[in-house]
Design a binder for these strands. Structure first.
Lengths: 195, 195
DNA sequence: GTAGAATGAACCGCGGTTCAGTCATCGGCA
DNA sequence: TGCCGATGACTGAACCGCGGTTCATTCTAC
């Protein structure tokens, strides 16, 4: 019987290896060595090298969206929900450096991931953000004429860029310190009255 | 004597080929065929395949920053300058579909874009944005306590995400239509009084 | 003893790069 | 003007290292 923990172990090893060397500079044998198995074994659990990256991303992203959904549901106020999303996003990046490196830098590559297979997982995260904005508009807290899709992409883009800069930089500062300013500027931008 | 137009022709061909197939799925011979020359000729003008991508990006980005600097200088009001940057950014993306594809999708891969060789060119663009924000703060138009670096990254991230979504999507809408809302939300977020 | 999981050396296709040969250009000379 | 040799840009077939993938064999658990 196939070991049910193997795929997880391989994915975890792959995250460390990709974070260190980048996807295209990582050999399948590197991942195998990191996982303490033979390279052929990987092909018992993954179809191709690409498949490792795709499943890695899908798994982590699904976990992430589930967590954000739960945490956001626990907040009542739309403004508090936005602050929560930003805080969670930055905390996650900060406490998972290897995963952050892979997601922010390696995974951006072309047609394979953002388009195609993983588009669904990304848009699920967008949906969470957009729902909060809709809720805020309905509650009269956000501008009635707020362009939802544009505002959603703006917030995601802002968080994503802060995250990318932090990952690419020396990580000399605390990313979580940026959470309050980011939320505050964004909220001031979308609310009807001042925050 | 080496043909001084060749490097340009090769870069232009590379943009079309990379846009169509992605960087890693493009052969050097594909670029050569697109440019109407032999593959070996490329190595008279470029050191490696990577070199093509790096020089492509540097050239286009330098042109871009020069244009933005000039256009921004022509505006007086800091708010107008921000609106100008957003409008230019989206217009450029929209009217250069192949280049946009390469910059938004292909160039993000690995360590090539924000890190490495092109870091300087990217940060020059950041500097333009940040200067406008500084000017606005000094003029009392933007919040005195505005965190400049955070706000700069937020605006860039917002524009960049809109651009990426547009490129990845079917391009079914006009990206330039998003310029006004993006500028307006951002400006409302950073100004002292309402816009 | 058997099933099937694991191994890892070898295979093989790919494609970046090279370089020996070809061709176009041009200055010098009769 | 017309020929000739030299220069160096250009060509593209072939080379070769790389690394993803395979599979004959070994190991392990029951």
């Amino acid at each position: 019987m196939r070991d049910p923990d193997k795929p997880q172990a391989i994915i975890d090893a792959a995250i460390r290896v990709f974070a260190r060397n980048g996807y295209y500079n990582s050999r399948v044998s590197d991942i195998a060595r990191e996982a303490g198995i033979a390279s052929g074994t990987i092909y018992l659990y993954f179809k191709t090298k690409d498949d490792i990256l795709v499943r890695l991303f899908r798994e982590k992203m699904a976990e992430w969206v589930a967590l954000v959904r739960k945490e956001v549901a626990a907040e009542g106020d739309p403004l508090a929900k936005i602050r929560k999303i930003v805080a969670l996003h930055f905390r996650k990046i900060e406490e998972s450096p290897d995963l952050a490196e892979v997601v922010q830098v390696e995974l951006r590559q072309g047609h394979k991931f953002f388009r195609g297979a993983s588009a669904h997982e990304v848009s699920a995260y967008f949906d969470v953000i957009q729902s909060v904005l809709e809720e805020g508009v309905a509650a009269g807290r956000f501008r009635r004429d707020l362009p939802l899709k544009v505002a959603t992409k703006m917030l995601f883009g802002a968080m994503d860029q802060l995250a990318t800069s932090w990952v690419l930089g020396k990580r000399a500062y605390r990313l979580t310190d940026a959470a309050a300013p980011v939320a505050s500027i964004f909220l001031k931008g979308v609310t009807t009255d001042d925050v």
